[in-house]
Each structure stands twice: as C-alpha cells, then as structure tokens.
Simulated assay, not measured.
Amino acid sequence: MQGCLLIHGFTGSPYEVEPLAEFLRKKTDWNVKSITLPGHGDELNLRGVTSDKWIEAAEEGVEELLQSCDKVYVIGFSMGGLLASYLAYQYPVEKLVLLSAAAYYVNPKQLLKDTKEMIRDGMRGQLVDNELFIRYKNKIGATPISATLQFRRVVRKVRPLLKEVEVPTLIAQGLVDGIVPPKSAKYLYEQISATQKEVFYSPVAKHLICHSEDCDELFERVFIFLNQ
C-alpha cells in the first residue's frame, strides 16, 4: 500500500490541504493522512508550543505510515513544506511535494496589493469572500510573538538541510502569493539536491494554493508526479 502525509502551514489547519487530500482519496486507494500540528486547528492555542512539538507531530505522522505502507509520499504547505522537507531528509520517503513552501516569507509588494483589494472588497460589502480576510481575521490576535519566533526557528533549522534532500521533488508556487514570494520556489529548486525535481507556477494562485482557481491543474500535476 502507498501512503501520503499532508502537513498544513503555520496558524493553519488541514483545511489548507484538504482539497488535495480529497482529490487523492478519490483517485487512489492510498492511505491519505492529514495531521493537525500542536496548537493549530480551527481554534489556535499556540502559546507555549515549541517548534520541536511541530516536528515531533510530523515525525509521528510519517512513522505511522511507514509502519503500514510500502511507499510513503509527503506533501507540505507553507511551513508544512519545511516540515515535509525535514521528513524527506530524515526518513525513507519516496517523493516530496512542496506547496507554497516558506523558505522565504512575506512578499511586501503583493501583500500591499492584496491589502488594497481587501479594502475595496470591504467597501463593496464583499469582505467575506476575500482570501486575505478569511485567512487572517481570527489569527492575528491569537498568534503570540513567541509562536512566530518558533516558526522562524523551523525555517532556520530546515534551510541548511535542503541540500541533503535527494528524493524526487515537486515544488508548486503561486505567482500572486502575498505570504510566500515566488523566489522561495526558486531557492528550493536550487538548494534541493534531487536529480528529479520540477517547479509548477500558478499564475493566479495566492497563498492558499489548494483553493486557487486553477487547483485542478495543480492536483493533476501532483497526481502524475507521484505516479511516475
């Protein structure tokens, strides 16, 4: 049996990767598993939670699949992409998929555009449909500075290990992502040592790439990559 572990991002939940998880469940008979990192989920409780706990949760998820599956794939979104890269370095996973992976974070120019768009949507009474508003309306006050520092700790820990990642890797990045800039995908491609690696750029995807207008194309690309 094949297993697939999906890891969400900082301050997020499995919702961020759920469309891809459901796509893979419908297309395959794999054991597709999404985890919720400590302190994360529908209600955030990040105070006092360390990056080591996030790494441990990711390790427990991949170890569980490795015990029951012949092949295991790991997919990570945003900070989850860094955790997934760490697993690919530490464990015998077959393939790695990085979605908007936060080797770099905050794209000031795009974030400014998104903020202006959010203001316009608010004036038109369409704020509830704005991605930036949906993602951050309940998170800013619930995210202590200490948690942000732990996120940065994950980045500092994993970036030097990327050159040790040798498993086939697919990197996907939205070109209008206000959180993770496109240069992050370029950096990952250059740093990861895998001989089989590729980059998929979405011209329309913002940060929540699994919820983008062209996500079907991304999902097919992921499916083909994992089945090669």
Score class of each variant (00 low, 15 high):
Val49Phe: 12
Lys163Gly: 00
Pro181Phe: 06
Gln126Pro: 04
Val158Met: 01
Arg159Lys: 12
Glu94His: 12
Ile209His: 05
Ala194Met: 10
Leu82Glu: 03
Val49Asp: 11
Glu131Asp: 14
Lys116Tyr: 10
Val62Gly: 03
Ile209Trp: 04
Ala194Arg: 09
Ser193Phe: 02
Thr36Asp: 07
Leu175Ser: 07
Thr11Gln: 05
Ile119Cys: 01
Thr36Ala: 08
Met79Ile: 11
Ser85Gly: 09
Gly12Ala: 01
Thr148Gly: 05
Ser13Ile: 01
Glu16Trp: 06
Val93Lys: 01
Ser34Phe: 03
Ala102Ser: 14
Val106His: 09
Thr115Gly: 09
Ser202Thr: 13
Asn107Glu: 14
Pro92Arg: 04
Val165Thr: 01
Glu22Ile: 06
Ser193Thr: 02
Ile7Gln: 07
Lys139Ile: 03
Asn227Gln: 13
Asp177Tyr: 13
Ser34Cys: 15
Asn227Glu: 09
Ile171Arg: 14
Lys186Thr: 12
Trp54Pro: 04
Ala185Gln: 05
Asp214Phe: 04
Tyr15Trp: 14
Val128Trp: 13
Asp177Thr: 10
Ser51Ala: 15
Lys71Glu: 15
Pro203Val: 07
Phe133Leu: 01
Tyr104Leu: 15
Ile35Thr: 08
Leu20Asp: 13
Ile192Pro: 00
Ile224Pro: 00
Arg221Ala: 13
Asn45Trp: 05
Pro168His: 08
Val72Glu: 04
Arg25Gln: 13
Val97Trp: 01
Pro108Phe: 10
Ser13Thr: 09
Leu149Asp: 09
Cys210Pro: 02
Leu44Gly: 08
Leu112Trp: 06
Phe77Glu: 11
Ala142Gly: 01
Met123Ala: 15
Ile75Phe: 03
Lys33Asp: 05
Phe200Ser: 07
Pro203Arg: 05
Gly76Ala: 05
Pro19Gly: 07
Val128Met: 15
Leu208Lys: 06
Lys116Thr: 06
Tyr189Ala: 00
Tyr15Thr: 14
Val72Ile: 04
Pro38Met: 08
Leu82Ile: 10
Gly76Glu: 02
Ala142Val: 03
Glu220Phe: 07
Glu59Phe: 11
Cys210Asp: 05
Ala101Met: 03
Leu6Ala: 09
Val176Glu: 12
Tyr189Trp: 06
Pro168Asp: 07
Thr169Ser: 07
Phe133His: 11
Glu217Val: 14
Lys95Tyr: 02
Gly125Val: 06
Glu22Trp: 08
Ile75Glu: 10
Glu220Lys: 12
Lys95Gly: 07
Lys186Leu: 14
Thr50Trp: 03
Ser212Lys: 01
Thr148Leu: 10
Leu226Gln: 11
Gly141Pro: 03
Gln150Gly: 12
Thr148His: 04
Ser100Glu: 13
Leu82Gln: 02
Glu43Gln: 15
Arg156Tyr: 12
Met123Lys: 15
Glu217Pro: 01
Phe200Met: 08
Lys183Met: 14
Gln90Tyr: 06
Glu64Pro: 01
Ala194Lys: 09
Asp70Phe: 05
Val222Trp: 01
Glu16Gly: 08
Lys113Phe: 10
Glu220Gln: 13
Ala88His: 02
Ser202Ala: 07
Arg221Ser: 10
Val176Phe: 08
Lys26Leu: 10
Leu87Gly: 02
Ile55Leu: 15
Leu96Glu: 05
Val180Cys: 12
Leu37Val: 08
Asp214Glu: 06
Ile209Lys: 03
Asn107Asp: 15
Pro108Ile: 14
Val180Leu: 10
Leu111Thr: 09
Arg25Asp: 02
His211Arg: 11
Pro144Thr: 13
Ala194Tyr: 09
Lys163Glu: 00
Tyr189Cys: 00
Glu217Gly: 09
